[in-house]
Amino acid sequence: MSLLEEGFRFYSRPDRQEARWIHPTVKAHLQPDWIDVTDLGSEALVEFFTSKPLPHGQAECAKAQLDIFNDTKEPAA
């Protein structure tokens, strides 16, 4: 059984210097600002890890994540 099948998700630190498989219940307590990149395709994952890192701080990260994953390409409100 794979980690994905066991409920784990692949998360990246906001600075994109580290990524790992983490169970969501652990992530909520230990890495609340990490970004779930599990469902990104290969090209999107490469683009994610080679583009500009997110700002520091939970509120700033949440806004930046909305911009990154916003399919309309309009700035998040």
Rank of each mutant, 00 (worst) to 15 (best):
P55C: 03
E60V: 06
G57H: 02
E47D: 13
Q17E: 12
W34S: 11
P53C: 04
F8G: 07
G41K: 04
D39E: 14
Q65T: 05
A76F: 02
R20W: 02
T50K: 07
D36G: 05
A64G: 07
F49Q: 07
Y11T: 10
G41V: 06
L66Y: 00
D71M: 05
K73H: 12
V26D: 13
G57W: 00
S12Y: 01
P32C: 02
I68R: 14
F10N: 03
L30V: 10
E47K: 08
P75T: 06
A28Q: 13
V37G: 02
L66S: 15
L30H: 09
D67Y: 00
K63T: 07
A44H: 06
P53M: 07
E18T: 12
A44D: 15
A62E: 15
G41R: 04
L4I: 10
Q58K: 15
L66V: 02
N70Q: 07
P55D: 08
R9S: 11
L66T: 14
Y11N: 10
E5R: 04
Q31V: 09
L40R: 01
E47T: 06
G7T: 10
L30F: 12
D39Y: 01
E6C: 08
E43D: 15
W34F: 13
A76H: 09
A59N: 09
S42H: 11
P55A: 12
F69A: 11
S12D: 11
Q58P: 04
P32R: 01
V37T: 06
P75K: 08
S12I: 00
V26N: 13
H56M: 10
E47P: 00
N70V: 01
A64F: 06
A76G: 14
A28F: 01
A64K: 09
T25L: 10
Q31E: 13
F8R: 06
L3E: 09
A28Y: 02
